[in-house]
């Protein structure tokens, strides 16, 4: 089956085109070539699934630093202090 698509793209090219493919940034002809390759290549189908998985897992991180608890929501006193800075700046700029 694969041999039919030899003139299209190969696995090693696919792994470099994958982001442009997922981003919808490939020219139409190349999209078709990628689609044909994936349809014929179970390993690249798996690679595509892995990349989607990777994006999904990355969406679950929250920037926390190892060994430290995740950042807490802004405490009220910080919010009050920022609001005060805002008001002071505005009053002095308007004065």
């Amino acid at each position: 089956m694969r041999v039919l698509f030899r003139r299209d793209i190969e696995c090693q090219q696919f792994v470099e085109l994958i982001t442009d493919y997922l981003e919808g940034a490939l020219p139409r002809g190349l999209v078709k070539a990628v689609d044909r390759h994936i349809a014929a290549c179970p390993d690249c189908t798996e690679y595509l699934a892995q990349m989607r998985r990777t994006i999904q897992i990355t969406g679950h991180i929250d920037g926390q630093i190892k060994g430290e608890p995740p950042p807490q929501p802004l405490p009220d006193e910080m919010l009050d202090a920022l609001q005060k800075a805002f008001e002071e700046f505005h009053n002095s700029a308007g004065a």
Partner: peptide
């Protein structure tokens, strides 16, 4: 233009 010789695992 190679083909997989060590393909990705089935996650």
């Amino acid at each position: 233009r190679g083909e997989w010789s060590q393909p990705p695992a089935r996650w």
